[in-house]
Structures are given as structure tokens and as C-alpha cells.
Amino acid sequence: MAEVGRGTRVFRGALARLGGALFVLWMVATLTFFAIRLIPGDPAEAILGGPGSQTSPEALAAVRAEYGLDQPVLVQYLAQLARLATGDLGRSYSLNQDVAPLLIGQLGGTLLLAVLALGVAWLLALGLATWSTRGGRVAWSVGSGLEIVAAALPHFWLATALIVLFSVWLGWLPPISTPGVAGLVLPVLTLAVPLAGFLGQIMRESLLTALESPFVLSARARGESERGVRWVHSIRHAALPAISLSGWAFGSLISGAVVVETIFARPGLGRTLLNAVTVRDVPVVVGAVLIVAVGYILMTLLTDLAQRIADPRLRTR
């Protein structure tokens, strides 16, 4: 009956998570490395300015030797892993610049976009869920319908529709992303609305379950008001599943950023990634995907922590 100490258990748990995270990063680096080689074309040409440029065979050979492209693929792969392990993301083929500072410079804009979109999605979902569980059958159907439509909207369509509505017709907001708050509104909404649809569906369902549970009946029997029932007793229950979904949501926001940053001509990781894929800039693609993966892992960790804060039952386990 060896009782394992709490400290040891926490430590073991942390170690397991760290191991898991490293494994994910390794898999991501591997998959990206090989996936980009499936695109037809010669990377050496990409380095020298793309397939259209007139390049001499000597120049190509020199570039191949310089970048190690004349080595077998496995050697290139191992060499890249070794570089990545030391934190060196390499040098961009197309931009002739170190990858790490390049990507870190782009990271801020994308993070801001994703975090704002997640926040706005939460507010929209919470508002819709609370309203639609309060107003009887009609509100329930309307809320449910809105959520399904919102969740089904593709980013590129929604972005175009918002531009037409707010920039072209009403002229309230700029059609491309300008520095400042006005330029952020449409990109953030484009990402937030579909996500709010997903989150809202889950929140409404769990809010309703909580509202119909015996502990809410007990609270009402104590004289709790409708507002008290909602804010003191139900909202946490409604938030729990949505919190656990937020880690996944963050990942989908980053992939959505690729589309949104391109449409709104907004600088950021997503657009950099898209450009890099177009010109087969392997180090930038691998670097960007790795950074997104790290962000995803951190976000999952944050979600777990948030869940422990919101649900005390998880703490005692």
C-alpha cells in the first residue's frame, strides 16, 4: 500500500506531458518535411527565384551543394532534425533571411487576431445561449438555427460578405486590414462567427441540462432569483465543455488565419506560411508549422489549467 506522494504524482504528470509534447513536435517536423517534398519541382530552382527564372546548371549545382540538397533525403532529414533540436530554424530560401526572427516578427499579429476572435466567439456564444434558453420555444429554435448557420459558414465566404456589407455598401470599415482597431474588426468577426456557432451549440445544451437539474430546483426552492440561478449555479456548468473545446478552437483559428490574412492583406504567420508553401520555401514552412504546433500545445495546457480552475472536481483527482 505505497501511497504515492502528491508531489511525485504532479512531477510524473508534468514529465509525461513534456514527453508527449516533444513527441508531437517531432511528428510535426517529420510530416512537414516529407509532405513538402511531395510538391513537384526542384527546390534549388525555388531558391534561385522560382521555376520561371533562367538559371544555369552550374548555379543550380552550387546551390544544391550549399543547402545539402545533393545529399540523400534521409541525410537531409536528419540534418534538419539536428538543426531544429538546437533551436535553429534555418534560413529562408526565398527571403534570404533567418527563419526564426522572421516568423517571430509575424507571430504577434496572428496571435492578436486569434485571441481576439476566441474572446469575441465566447461572448457571442454565451449571449446567444443565455438568450435562447430564456425565451421559450421560439427563442430556442431561433438560437439553434443561428448557431448551425454560423457554424457552417466558410471563412472565405464570410469575409467576402462582410467586406461587401460593411466596406462597399455601408463604407464603415476598411476592406483591407489597416493598422488600428477599425482594421481588426472584419478579420476578427470572420474568424469569430463560425466558432461562436460551435461553442454556442455546446453551451446551450449544457446550460439547459444545468437549468433542469435538481440542484437548480433546490436553489429555486431556497428563493434564488432567475438571475442568481443562471449566474451562480448554471453558467459554470455551461462553460465547462466549451472551455475544453477552446484548445481545439485555437488551432482552427490559426488555420483560419491563413485565409483571413490573405483576404484582408494582413501581415501575419498565416500569410507568410501560404507564401512559403507557394514558393516551396521548406525552412519557413517547417518553422511556421512548428511554431503553430507549439502554440497549440501551450493552448491545450492553458485549457487544462482553466478547466481545473472552473471545475474543482478535477483538482482532487
Binding site: 437539474s213 435538481p214 440542484f215 433546490s218 436553489a219 456548468h237 472552473a310 474543482p312 472536481r313
Partner: peptide, 11 residues
């Protein structure tokens, strides 16, 4: 009510 496990707020 009947079952206090669900009649008291579990959180």
C-alpha cells in the same frame, strides 16, 4: 430532494 449528489451544486 431525493439525491443530494445532484441536488447540491456539484461545483
Amino acid at each position: 430532494l431525493q439525491d443530494a449528489l445532484v441536488s447540491l451544486d456539484p461545483l
